[in-house]
Computed example of a mutant assay.
Amino acid sequence: MAEPVIEIEVVYAAVDRQVLRTASVAEGLSVRAALLESGIEAEFPELDLASCPLGIFGKVVADPEVRVIQAGERIEIYRPLLADPKEVRRLRAAKAAEAKARNQ
Rank of each mutant, 00 (worst) to 15 (best):
A2W: 01
P4D: 13
V5F: 00
I6E: 12
I8A: 02
E9D: 11
Y12S: 00
Y12T: 00
A14N: 01
A14P: 03
V15M: 06
V15H: 15
V15L: 12
V15R: 11
V19T: 12
L20C: 15
R21L: 09
V25E: 01
A26T: 08
E27P: 09
E27D: 11
G28H: 10
G28L: 06
S30Q: 10
R32G: 03
R32H: 13
R32P: 06
A33N: 15
A34K: 01
L35R: 01
L36G: 05
E37F: 07
G39H: 08
E41G: 01
E41W: 00
A42C: 07
E43Y: 12
F44Q: 01
P45D: 08
P45C: 01
E46D: 15
L49M: 13
S51E: 07
P53F: 07
G58C: 04
K59Q: 11
K59S: 15
K59V: 14
A62T: 15
D63G: 05
P64C: 14
P64L: 05
E65Q: 09
E65S: 08
E65I: 04
V66T: 14
R67Q: 11
V68M: 07
V68P: 09
I69H: 00
I69V: 14
Q70K: 15
Q70H: 13
A71N: 12
A71M: 05
A71F: 03
G72K: 00
R74K: 08
R74D: 14
R74C: 10
I75T: 04
Y78S: 04
R79H: 15
P80W: 03
L81C: 06
A83N: 03
D84V: 11
D84K: 03
V88P: 06
V88R: 05
V88F: 02
V88Q: 05
R89L: 01
R89W: 04
R89M: 05
R90L: 08
L91I: 07
R92D: 10
A93S: 12
A94E: 15
A94Y: 00
A94G: 03
K95I: 11
A96L: 01
A96Y: 00
A97W: 06
A97T: 07
K100A: 10
A101C: 02
